[in-house]
Amino acid sequence: MPQFDPSVWAPQLIWLVITFVALYFLMSRVALPRITDILEEREYKINDAIRKATGLKRDAEDAAASYQKLMADARAKAQAEVRAVRERADGEAADRHAELNAKLSEEVSRAEAGIADARNAAFDSVREMATEAAATATERLIGEKVDAKSVDAAIEAAIKGAS
């Protein structure tokens, strides 16, 4: 086998050393630092982006929470206002209702009083007329003046008997 011929060892070993040392320096000085740089830069960028994204997510969550809180507050406030308005309206309605009731009952009682007066007046005039008519009729019948007092008493008794 050509591999075991010692005369070919030296040139191979010398060139092995030359080429491998050249490769080592090419790798360690030129190629590998470039790769390391880009890998580190990428890792840094990715971590940075993740950190930024986390921050933005937290901001968004905060904003969402404050929006929810704002909405809940507004809703509660609106409901409170609606309730207050309704209560006030209810109160006013009740007041007006009571006022109207009072006015109506006052008018009713006034009207009733007027009716009673009118009735009494009518009653009195009827009675007066009845008394006069009775007195005149009696005078014509018996031809003498009748005492007003006895006519009155007779009418009274008649009304009592009628009612």
Partner: peptide, 16 residues
């Protein structure tokens, strides 16, 4: 020492 450039050396250089 014999430091001749051989076919072996050529392929070492090519590998690099």
């Amino acid at each position: 020492v014999d430091a001749s450039f051989t076919n072996s050396a050529l392929f070492m250089v090519l590998s690099v």
